[in-house]
Amino acid sequence: MSARISREDLRKLVAEWLAAGKKVFGPVRVKAGLELYAPLDSAEALLLDGWIRPANSIKELVFPRHEALYGYRILKNRVELVDLAAEIPEQIAIGAHPCDAAALAALDKVFNWDYRDEFYNRRRAATTVITMACAAHDDQCFCTSVGLGPEAERGSDALLHERDGGYEVRAISEKGRILLGGLAGETACPTAQTSGANTPPRRFDSAQVAAFAKEHFEDPYWAERALACLGCGACTFTCPACHCFDMVDEGNGREGVRARNWDACQFPMFTLHASGHNPRANQGARQRQRIYHKFVMYPDKFGEVLCTGCGNCSRNCPVGLGVLPAATEIGNG
């Protein structure tokens, strides 16, 4: 059985969620030319057309850019730790893309191997991801080169397909089924209708990218590739799958919090030792790290590429770098 929902009813549904006090995130137009996933203050703010994908990702729902881990109070020579983990309200990502949702499935692994990160897990548990299959792609999209596609299900709790002015709705997980109830069907959407206009061509072979990164670790290629790199974190921070973080203390002499903030392997300070030694002493090594981590290290350890082909790194790079240009060069042997 497949089910349909009209655009109006989809907005009504969002309005109902909001009225019920749920936190709903979706693509919004912040200003002309800038779409971001953001908390919706009304169902009307939800953007349904006219864009490829937001400049950020939904990872922020499960891994916020800034999160307090605990508080502390200092009383003379004693310290008291304060639990700051507030209740996480139910949150819904509506209109996420398959390349966003798939990243959550990858993040689940690193946050749960051996040590379980409950900050991540409790947000993940509170989050339902309703993905919108892509209706279009641009020349930065490359999901098909990393084993995904415009209708990929991985990480999604439900999937919407735009059909004839409305959406076909399909629940994928129990969470999706519970949230959508009778609105959702169970059968796969007929892929015959896939026009292909939404499917980016395969631009490289990720196994070849991995092989190059492994075999050419010390290759001058990396330094040359990275010459234009400015060493900012625009690529990693807008990546749905990058998850490196820093831990900092903020407060005064009496009390404060220990918090984690997103961090980026592209910053020179990221690996700098207190002694002054820096294992990744140049931007080439830092660019290599980003590719190596995504295409070699993560797959070796967790069985999947840590890149979902969203293209955000290139779209957000002020100087035209990112995964795609490099992978196209080294992954087309």
């Binding site: 690193v110 946050f111 191997w113 051996d114 040590y115 990160d117 670790f217 998850h243 490196c244 973080f245 820093d246 831990m247 984690r260 961090d263 392997c265 990221f270 690996t271 700098l272 030792h273 294992p279 790290q289 190596y292 981590h293 070699v296 290290m297 070796d300 350890k301």
Partner: peptide
């Protein structure tokens, strides 16, 4: 090895060196 670390528990990515 003395790679810079933050979390110590295989999450934060800072000590990542090659495949480990």
């Amino acid at each position: 090895l003395e790679n810079r670390m933050k979390c110590g528990v295989g999450k934060c990515g800072r000590c990542n060196a090659g495949p480990v």
